[in-house]
Design a protein around this nucleic acid. Structure first.
Length: 593
RNA sequence: GGUCCCAUAGCUCAACUGGAUAGAGCAACGGUUUUCUAAACCGUAGGUCGCAGGUUCGAGUCCUGCUGGGACUACCA
């Protein structure tokens, strides 16, 4: 199967050469707008300087040349300098027949690119449960990993767990003070939520101590530094770093609770990882690199003994990479882990960090430092930056209790899916297990699609009422279309080949075939841009087209056997593409719903 | 103060990276089911693409300025 653009590039280059003696010029194509007749459009304005004739005349001349010289082209029309080109139906039909039985449409063979990419996502803290912001991160990371795999890359999904630090000590301390030995088992509270509860508890205690100190005449800033409970948390962190047995024991216990909780949430979200990293193992990395960088004069020592790099020539500021007491800061660790990963995976071509856009600056600095340290792969580090998730009432603030909890959200979506499905009553014969599966599929489909259809770079508004809507541009609408196609196909026992020489493609069928044709390049584009929203928009377009086709034309009711079998094949192929596209978003599609 | 990001229909988002008359969904109104799943389909209405300049054959898209919103700017993570 020849590529449409390749064919046209070659033919039109020949035309330009023959007609105007023009060589090597970049051609500008676009899909023909629906209001005009044609499959693909050549924009001729940029050619007129060389052709020396008007856009319309240029377009007409090229069109005429194509019609007589390129056998695959049926006809053309010219509108205001746009050359709309139509390929023969035979061409589209041949294309369709070449893919109709391929269950992997749009997917390149695994590892065919020879490229290995590590994609880090999720990266939670172990002091509180996952919330809506993490959900976007997880869904985005997982989907991009799928998309990159579909582009033939080998992808290592990595998760760097922030399992240490002052914030973890806060939960630990509050539990020690007020926990009375409470455990997930004794309380029936999911582990990550239990630990989160004590993180909030710490904040309460801390605040009341601050108020007390302020009442005693201290300034707010002083009080924040002097509150006994914060001092104790800092002591606890020091003990942790020294390996104090009791502190380590408590740390392991409470982190264990959190991991049990996360495991459930990850399973419910349907995300997974190939490689787990823990900051308790990596937080010391990078110090030797700093020493090395000092020798290379990439870094310099300041008067107070801290080590820094000056990035003011790059439009950035001075950045401390080691404190004056010799301890590392966050970026020290990031430098170390990046280098470590390229050592661990020598075949690694690219390292992608899925992290919110509030850290744009951090990653600019990080990549610049790696570059200055002389690592050639620094250019292959990429920050997959995404916008914040906001609620109709504004930003999520844990202190004000406006955070949308991931587990609560999933439960709520599940219940809505169950309610709606029961009301429609189409699967009343399902067993309890089948219903449970279906509700999970639909609720997750709704949530994932709702989040992934927005360009990752942009901040998004999460309106709970809209997220559980199952009509219109939603995951369940697309899932429904898939189920509907499958329902039609189930009704036919003898699925027969059709004689393509007897098929006349109608307009909507041609639109569908052209859209199926686009899938491959859409997957490529989504991969190049790390953008699942491109897949979402695409699959929605295809689904809308199919539904229109379904309403306008008979499939199994069609009397002409050849046409019937052709339409069945077209339907089946749509179902495959819908399923494949949704798969790239991490969304399953049901056989019935 | 400095750096960066965002602004498109009442609301939520698109616009193939500079191309034709800026498109969908939701919400509103009207229509479609004895016929393959109505979680669907069709129609009506809704726009000074934040504002003002500039670049060019052509700008929602690029450049400048302004307004409004946000993020970052730690020897925090």
């Amino acid at each position: 199967m020849q590529n449409v653009l390749q064919i046209l590039n070659i033919s039109i280059s020949k035309a330009l050469s023959a007609l105007y003696e023009i060589q090597n010029i970049e051609l500008s194509f676009q899909k023909t707008k629906p209001d005009f007749e044609g499959d693909i459009t050549l924009v001729t304005f940029n050619l007129t300087k060389l052709t020396k004739v008007s856009p319309d005349a240029t377009a007409t001349a090229i069109g005429e040349y194509l019609k007589t010289h390129e056998t695959l082209i049926e006809k053309y029309n010219v509108v205001k300098g746009f050359l709309n080109i139509s390929f023969k139906n035979e061409f589209w039909l041949n294309y369709f027949c070449s893919v109709k039985d391929n269950l992997n449409i749009g997917f390149k063979t695994t590892n065919s690119s020879g490229k290995t990419i590590m994609l880090e996502y999720s990266s939670p803290n172990t002091n509180k449960p996952l919330h809506l912001g993490h959900v976007r991160n997880n869904l985005l990371g997982y989907s991009v990993a799928k998309i990159l795999s579909a582009n033939g890359h080998k992808v290592v999904k990595a998760n760097l767990v922030n399992d240490r630090g002052i914030h973890i000590c806060k939960s630990m301390l509050a539990w020690k003070l007020n926990g009375n030995g409470e455990t997930p088992q004794s309380s029936g509270i999911k582990g990550d939520h239990l630990v989160g509860k004590y993180y909030v508890e710490f904040d309460k205690l801390y605040k009341s101590e601050i108020i007390k100190l302020v009442n005693e005449g201290k300034t707010k800033e002083e009080a924040e530094k002097l509150a006994p409970i914060i001092l104790e948390a800092q002591q606890m962190l020091l003990k942790w770093e020294k390996g104090d047995a009791e502190v380590i024991e408590l740390w392991k216990t409470m982190n264990g609770w959190v991991y049990d909780g996360f495991k459930q949430t990850y399973a419910n979200l349907g995300v997974e990882f190939d490689k787990m990293y823990y900051e308790s193992n990596t937080y010391l990395l990078g110090k030797e690199i700093v020493a090395d960088g000092l020798n290379k004069k990439v870094f310099y020592k300041k008067e107070n003994g801290s080590v820094a790099i000056d990035l003011s020539n790059e439009g950035l500021d001075e950045k401390i990479v080691l404190r004056s007491d010799g301890t590392s800061v966050y970026i020290t660790q990031d430098i170390g882990t990046a280098i470590e990963r390229f050592k661990e995976f020598p075949e690694l071509n690219q390292l992608i960090y899925t992290v919110g856009n509030e850290q744009d600056y951090h990653f600019k600095v990080l990549f610049k430092i790696l570059d200055k340290l002389g690592y050639a792969w620094a250019k292959e580090c990429y920050h997959l930056s995404y916008g914040m998730v906001e609620l109709p009432e504004g930003k999520m603030k844990s202190r004000e209790g406006t955070v949308v909890d991931a587990d609560d959200l999933l439960t709520e979506m599940y219940n809505t899916a169950a309610k709606t499905t029961a009301e429609l009553g189409k699967v009343d014969d399902f067993s309890e297990g089948e219903l449970n599966e279906l509700y999970k599929t639909i609720s997750l489909g709704a949530l994932k699609y709702f989040i992934l259809k927005v360009d990752p770079k942009k901040k998004m508004l999460f309106n709970p009422a809209e997220s559980i809507d199952f009509n219109g541009n939603t995951g369940p609408f697309i899932q429904y279309t898939h189920a509907r196609i499958k329902s039609v196909i189930r009704k036919v026992e003898n699925f027969k080949e059709f004689d393509k020489s007897k098929i006349e493609i109608n307009l909507i069928e041609k639109e569908i075939i052209k859209t199926i044709y686009d899938f491959e390049s859409v997957v490529t584009e989504a991969g190049n841009l790390y953008n699942p929203a491109i897949i979402s928009n695409y699959v929605y377009e295809l689904t809308k087209l199919y539904n229109r086709f379904y309403h306008e034309h008979n499939i199994i009711r069609e009397e002409n056997e050849t046409v019937k079998n052709y339409r069945l094949a077209l339907s089946k192929t749509c179902a495959t593409v819908i399923a494949n596209a949704m798969n790239l978003l991490g969304i399953n599609v049901p056989e019935r719903m």
